[in-house]
């Protein structure tokens, strides 16, 4: 049986002068911040602040136009996920580097992207991609993932026939199956009802308690209060404020954060 208990762990993330533009439009503008704490970091901000783009840049899905992203990972020894190389040369982003990062990171999108296959085959696909092709080695991981998503009875069902909440739970289970060091979540509960939101939040909390560093984008202040340890508040592609969650929500220092948390309309320029 495969041992996933000893795996790489998050140490720190340093973002320095990160920039991304499309023509004249500066979407991420000299963004710098550091995350050293474990637990859950929420990225918040008004629409158009650059939250989703930042998450994609952090994950290596998009190549930055400038700046540097450095992930520091504690190396594991027997983990099925390979510890990534330091991710500090944006100009060398390529397929291989993305692959290396993807082995210690997982990302779940706002709208879960599920393959046109059954529930179990969606999970099995992710295992195969990570190099776990032996069925005997797959089985315990599949069982655990199905249990995590509470989809044991629906493993043969077409994944795209599941309800929105079930689909998101499956996407979460697929992402967490190999216990990644870092889990990136792009508004994972934005289209879910309260019960499904609670189920997904429980998975997020469990992942964090198990040692996975979670970086979560959310518009939901209640969710940030419930889950986040610290918040990075973005506005207009720049860092407006970074502080412990309760402190930032209760006493925001920056003008955009004050407007946001008091419910005033903030329009991205």
């Amino acid at each position: 049986m495969l041992d996933v208990s000893n795996r790489p762990g998050f140490k720190s993330l340093t973002v320095e002068n990160l920039s991304y533009n499309i023509n004249e439009s500066m979407l991420i503008d000299q963004l710098s911040f550091t995350i050293k704490s474990p637990g859950i970091t929420a990225i918040m901000g008004p629409n158009g602040a650059g939250k989703s783009l930042t998450l994609r840049l952090l994950h290596g899905l998009i190549k930055p136009k400038g700046g540097r992203i450095t992930w520091q990972i504690n190396e594991g020894t027997t983990s099925p996920t390979t510890p990534p190389r330091a991710h500090n040369k944006p100009e060398t982003y390529d397929e291989k580097q993305n692959k290396a990062l993807a082995t210690s990171q997982a990302m779940v999108f706002q709208k879960p992207v599920l393959l046109r296959r059954s529930v179990i085959d969606n999970l099995r696909y992710a295992l195969k991609v990570k190099g776990i092709k032996d069925r005997a080695a797959q089985q315990p991981l599949l069982n655990a993932a199905l249990k995590m998503a509470n989809l044991q009875d629906r493993q043969k069902s077409p994944a795209r026939r599941l309800s929105g909440g079930e689909q998101q739970r499956l996407a979460m289970a697929r992402a967490l199956m190999l216990r990644p060091a870092i889990l990136l979540l792009d508004e994972p509960t934005s289209s879910l009802d309260p019960a499904s939101t609670a189920a997904v939040e429980a998975l997020i909390s469990k992942a964090s308690n198990d040692g996975t560093k979670v970086i979560l984008i959310s518009h939901d202040i209640g969710q940030a209060k419930r889950l986040a340890d610290d918040i990075i508040f973005l506005n207009d592609g720049k860092l407006a404020e970074q502080a412990p969650a309760i402190e930032l929500i209760n006493t925001p220092q920056s003008r955009p954060a004050q407007q946001y948390f008091t419910g005033q309309l903030v329009l991205a320029s």
């Binding site: 994609r56 994950h59 899905l61 397929e95 993305n98 692959k99 290396a100 990062l101 993807a102 082995t103 990171q105 997982a106 990302m107 999108f109 992207v113 393959l115 696909y125 992710a126 991609v129 990570k130």
Partner: peptide
């Protein structure tokens, strides 16, 4: 539809085409 998810999983170009 699949691009970001498959890239996130670390799927390479040829494997993506097969998928």
């Amino acid at each position: 539809e699949y691009k970001e998810q498959l890239t996130s999983l670390g799927v390479g170009g040829i494997a993506m085409a097969k998928t």
